[in-house]
Design a protein around this nucleic acid. Structure first.
Lengths: 168, 168
DNA sequence: CAGCCGAGTTCAATCACCGAACTCATGTCA
DNA sequence: TGACATGAGTTCGGTGATTGAACTCGGCTG
């Protein structure tokens, strides 16, 4: 990946970036947290060239972030699901969201601890419980309607738990 | 940056990636936390093409992550220093380091709370004090000697505070 | 059986990245 | 003062990645 794999940088940050550092990859991971699981849904929501999406999804599968599993509803198709290693990227995604919210523009959704519906703090912890919830226990709650009108953007207007498959 | 700036992704994560999502950028930021401040030091430590380094440093300056200030010791030269917005990237850098350490290879240094020399937990907090130290109060403590022999890699073999200028 | 849909693959043009060589201002030493 | 070194870039030809549009293919759907 990335042309030349940051050879010689023996640092765990460089190793991480070899997996999630390419253009589009982190947005695919974000969408996977949002519950996107099908090729065309990623494509429609990200406006990513199909060839690149294929390459990135294969890369993420090879690197153990996603698994491709048969779609129970449609023979011959499959969906991309997040692995444990993928879920462990939640702190990275959250840290990027927090920085952007503070320094770029004020975010279009908030993230709540599903158990008590308290907004997570910048460290990803629930200020009420003191716990740092796993992504499965985080609720995405939109506060501004996005301008996009693709099926995924529309489905994302509802409050829902991370990693819960989106109904599109 | 990034060819096409993730147009239409009105999400703070996409906005963040427009600033730090390109190849090399995050490694430059990491090195800036390590105290690297001069063009040739970045170049030597990263093995990045000089033209690309110029482009990235200018981008980071334009985006308010670094500032270019006159070098007090050498007329006509300057150094790149981290801004407040740059410091706020520490949680992102730390999250990437933590993921790589867990899922790729077991890191070559640990990060300690300078005040009590306790190793930070995965959330970046000090388990002893309960505080989440600012990067200035984090100590980088090498545990494995890197294979690299450039001046920066050598200087990084000593324990030091983040953001403290490296003596090279 | 004709057409649709999801999930890709192929392809030419464009853009970014690479490494090596070149520039140019300052600093150092004889 | 002249010769050379060093830091910080710039320039440039070649290579590899990204883009958007068009094409393929297998499983439904009517």
């Amino acid at each position: 990946m990335l042309g030349k794999d940051y050879d010689g940088q023996d640092c765990s940050l460089a190793r991480t970036l070899e997996t999630v550092g390419e253009r589009w990859t982190m947005l695919i991971v974000r969408d996977a947290f949002f519950g996107v699981r099908r090729f065309n849904d990623f494509q429609a929501h990200l406006d990513i060239p199909r060839a690149v999406l294929t390459e990135r999804l294969n890369g993420l599968v090879d690197d153990g972030i996603l698994i491709r599993v048969p779609d129970p509803d449609h023979a011959g198709r499959h969906v991309y699901e997040m692995t444990e290693a993928g879920r462990d990227l939640w702190p990275v995604v959250h840290a990027l969201l927090v920085w952007g919210r503070r320094h770029r523009h004020s975010g279009s959704r908030v993230y709540l601890h599903a158990a008590c519906e308290t907004e997570l703090d910048d460290g990803g912890a629930c200020p009420a419980c003191g716990l740092t919830p796993e992504p499965e226990d985080v609720l995405s709650a939109p506060i501004v309607k996005s301008r996009r009108e693709d099926a995924v953007a529309v489905a994302l207007r509802a409050r829902h738990r991370l990693l819960e498959p989106l109904a599109t």
